[in-house]
Design a protein around this nucleic acid. Sequence first.
RNA 1: GGAGAAGUACCCAAGAGGUCGAAGGGGCUCCCCUGCUAAGGGAGUAGUACGGGAAACUGUAGCGCGGGUUCAAAUCCCGCCUUCUCCGCCA
Length: 422
Amino acid sequence: MLDIKFVVENKEFVKEQLSHRGGKYPVDKAVDLELKRRAILGEVEVLKAKRNADSEKIAQMKRAKEDASSIIAEMQKLGEEIKLLDSRLSEVEQELRSTILSIPNIPHKSLPVGKDDSANVVVRKHGEPTKFDFEPKPHWELGEALKIFDWPRSGKITGTRFTVYRGLGARLERAVISFMLDTHIFDNGYFEIYPPYMVNRASMTGTGQLPKFEEDAFAVKNTDYFLVPTAEVPVTNLHRDEVLDAADLPIKYCSYTACFRAEAGSAGRDTRGLIRQHQFNKVELVKFANPENSYEELEKLTNDAEKILQKLGLPYQVSMLSTGDVGFSSAKTYDIEVWMPSYNKYVEISSCSNFEDYQARRANIRFKDGKGSKPKFVHTLNGSGLAVGRTVAAIIENFQNADGSVTVPEALRKYMYVDVIK
RNA sequence: GGAGAAGUACCCAAGAGGUCGAAGGGGCUCCCCUGCUAAGGGAGUAGUACGGGAAACUGUAGCGCGGGUUCAAAUCCCGCCUUCUCCGCCA
């Protein structure tokens, strides 16, 4: 959420910056509500100050055994007024909160301005699209032939957009998870977290999945819990309502979880293979950074995620998202896109974002620079490091052989114990 | 899931309608004393959020969270959450 004080003082600037995202946001309404809130607050606080003073008087009179009944009668009226104003105040506050929550983050000034992904800018490429001297097959065909994926049965036991992995397929998925975690822990210096797969509503709100995107999440019946759509939610919320020590920043966490997404509104898209699933595995990178250097940390985090593809030998490119494509809570996002032969294009495999203080304000995550200083909001960042299923798909497609077997990338062999999947 | 108990500041803990934003200890900071050290004496010690003010300063909130009763709530009532103990079930 944006800083309402900043919005009030820079209303036109905020409106202009948000206009680059496309869409309309209730900035004027938020400002009006905030001014109204301050007016009521001023009024009610004067009355409360009087109540506190008069209560003191009553107490003194009672102690002196004097009659206080007339002043008590007056206080009854005062109490009514306070109650009325208080309830108006909380109404305004609630409305303000829901209004401000529906306003997205301000895009960083470095972003290309544009209405959608066509304005995204490729900032670097690594490797060349894989060339084959035979007709390459998509991973879903290869995987079914190798009997490492079983979609008829995943459909039977659960439904569409779920996958049963078998044998070396299951091992490959697990190997990729371990390889990613080990790289981030031992090469990149992240601290591993293994969190719950269910989180409460406050956590979902803290990172911005709620209230706006409730239909994208799986809610657990008869509870107020949600299946995690990404490890970003539990891991960022670890420090919700905390004041961190500046000396500990940046805090760097990596975390493997399964992720659950309803994929509402994606009907008909990527219906085959591993690309778009209701349940998928992901290793996530999360950072809590000092605002002074959060953009350097974003570059590093993106590089850390890229390292996975480099070590695997998969060709990829990195795009900077335009103002119209950048996510709701994000100020700046790099997408890492891996070459996917079956799509004949680069496909998103990681999204690395700096949320600045947008999530931190929602989730109330602050830091303090020594004893006397005031707590300030941290900057939160995260990125996939990487999406496991899509990595597996990219490995199968890019390392396929003419006979339908798949060569295991060098970096994974110590986890796979075999050199070829056949 | 059932039954009990508890949640007060950095920590422990007292407080059971007004004299309480909160006794007392520990810790921490500063000072004094003792040639170092140990010990002793004194002083200070909510942080925060939201207002007003150029500032000094000042108002409001705040005793797990949310409601209620009352002129007045840490204190009484209701709901919830968390932790602990016992029982049940269980990987």
